[in-house]
Design a protein around this nucleic acid. Structure first.
Length: 523
DNA sequence: TATAATATGATTAGCACC
DNA sequence: GGTGCTAATCATATTATA
């Protein structure tokens, strides 16, 4: 289906070629759906709270509008794809044609592939003039295509479907086992060399993070956008007493990394010595699972206590299994005889490498502390990767921090002794912005902290003004929302195109803008 | 009304076994 | 390869409470 070219041209005539949002709105209004216009639905975001995970999902009721669920789902999928593509910087026309040509079932990755191939073909035909920097910058994805026209793309797709010949691009990214990336302090993998694609070479350096166990294909897409850099998958259990399986895509050197000192406790008993007294021998855990945003209910720990109290001494195997399963699922620790409990916020802070009371006070609730901490970096892990910057920037760095959260990257850099000269931080949660601002003041930072609430504010003009005032960014960090990628999400685990997780494309957009502006300023 | 407490599976991957 | 099991997982929606 898709929007017809006629419809697109009509909308473009009404709004002018550059006004993508209006064109999109018009097209969606033209379509036969009995839905409010997209813009109107997006505006309902203003009712959401400060917490990035608690949006009212204004797309969830789409199905109820139609008697024919299948058709409605197709159309809404098409709209989401169109919206995502426009958000990524493609024109409505490009996006619409791609959807029409590739079919309704196409993934966003296939659509972007198609558009790239079409752009290559067009460029080859028309011998287009040099990229006009006065124009609104566009996704800089052309250079990552090795082929030169649509035919190559078609052949490649066909080849992939037929014989499963795995080219570098087609190969599904697999998680390493053990998950130690390009090395961890206990196993530095000194022999590993990697070559970074030309398009990815800094400055600026960039560092992107998200959950390792995302739905299939997500990391392929992320990697493809981030200049084909291979992800580094690392489990923070090699840095602290809790697991945290994450993927990092960055263009930093990997030689001569070093860990923060002192090394944090590596086992539960070292981290929480008071639990040792109550720890039963049949609970063989030595490390915790991933620290998440929610904790177990008091009802659950009470059920566990009652199950254990029915037996003297060592409980039967089925009770052990029940208790251990729940302990693993909820990261419960032993705090008394037959008594388990979730971690305190202070303990989570410590395990994640933050200063004590980092998230405490200033009006933040206990629930919000868990939530902010659960969404954060593990500081020691990130610091290990960023440590290579220390010698490169003895005078300090200018940092662009997207989806800052509670400032994991900032804390890591500070603990590494890398001065923060100018930090531009984008974080939607007011609670989190307050935490970072408070930390900034508590640690007597001498640099300048600019905090913004919305990534959409960070357009070309805004970035250019900021960058001109202090001369560009040395590092662009960000872990974009994982809500729609994380396994714990029972409701909307709809992948990179999900409501929050699609903000990845803003990370890419902004990073690419920064690269464009810095490249131009070099000339 | 705002905050806290509680209940709520599915999607991967690895492994043993056939 | 196919199957069945174990295991892990930066959460959301609803209900209860202050």
């Amino acid at each position: 289906m898709g929007f017809s070219e006629k419809m697109v041209s009509k909308a473009m005539q009404e709004h002018g070629e550059e006004n993508a949002d209006s064109i999109l709105e018009t097209l969606l209004t033209y379509s036969a759906l009995e839905e409010p216009p997209l813009e109107q639905r997006i505006e309902s975001d203003q009712f959401s709270t400060d917490n990035d995970g608690s949006f009212v999902d204004d797309f969830s009721d789409i199905d109820s509008f139609s008697d024919n669920e299948e058709i409605t789902n197709s159309i809404s999928g098409e709209q989401n794809n169109l919206k995502s593509l426009v958000k990524m910087g493609y024109t409505v026309q490009e996006a619409s044609i791609a959807i029409e040509r590739c079919g309704l079932d196409s993934s966003l990755a296939e659509l972007t592939d198609f558009i790239c191939a079409a752009q290559m073909a067009k460029a080859a035909d028309a011998h287009l003039a040099e990229f006009d920097l006065e124009e609104k910058p566009r996704p800089n994805i052309l250079k990552k295509r090795r082929g030169n026209d649509y035919e190559i793309w078609k052949k490649k797709k066909q080849r992939g479907l037929e014989s499963r010949v795995l080219t570098e691009d087609d190969e599904t990214i697999r998680l390493p086992n053990p998950m130690i990336g390009f090395g961890v302090p206990t196993d530095p993998c000194l022999t590993i060399r990697r070559t970074i694609p030309d398009a990815a070479i800094g400055p600026p350096y960039f560092y992107y993070e998200n959950v390792a166990l995302a739905p299939k294909g997500v990391w392929n897409t992320i990697s493809r956008f981030l200049y084909d850099v291979e992800p580094e998958f690392v489990d923070s259990k090699y840095f602290c007493a809790a697991a945290r399986k994450r993927g990092y895509i960055h263009n930093l050197p990997i030689e001569n990394r070093y860990p923060l000192l002192p090394l944090p406790p590596q086992t539960i008993h070292e981290a929480l010595p008071l639990t040792r007294r109550w720890w039963p021998s049949w609970d063989t855990r030595t490390q915790l699972n991933c620290l998440q945003t929610c904790i177990a209910s008091a009802k659950l720990t009470e059920r566990i206590r009652k199950a254990l109290e029915k037996h003297d001494g060592v409980p039967p195997l089925h009770v052990q299994k029940y208790v251990l399963d729940e302990c693993r699922k909820w990261n419960l620790v032993w705090v008394g005889r037959n008594k388990v409990a979730p971690l305190e916020p202070d303990e989570v802070e410590m395990l994640l490498g933050f200063p004590r009371n980092h998230t405490r006070g200033g009006g933040i609730s206990r629930t919000d502390r868990y939530k902010s901490l659960g969404n954060s970096f593990q500081v020691d892990t990130v610091a290990y990767h960023l440590s290579v910057l220390k010698d490169m920037y003895p005078g300090g760095i200018n940092l662009l921090s997207l989806f800052t959260g509670i400032g994991g990257a900032e804390v890591a850099l500070h603990r590494l002794g890398i001065p923060l000269k100018n930090v531009v931080s984008v974080e939607i949660s007011e609670v989190n912005r307050n935490i970072v601002r408070s930390w900034w003041e508590q640690t007597n930072q001498r640099g300048n902290l600019v905090d913004l609430a919305d990534v959409q504010q960070l357009n070309g003009d805004c970035l250019e003004k900021l960058m001109n005032s202090f001369g560009g960014f040395d590092l662009v960090v960000g872990g974009s929302p994982c809500n729609n990628l994380a396994g714990s999400n029972r409701h909307h685990r709809d992948g990179l195109e999900g409501k929050e997780s699609s903000l990845f494309y803003d990370y890419f957009r902004i990073l690419d803008l920064v690269k464009c502006i810095m490249t131009r300023n070099e000339d």
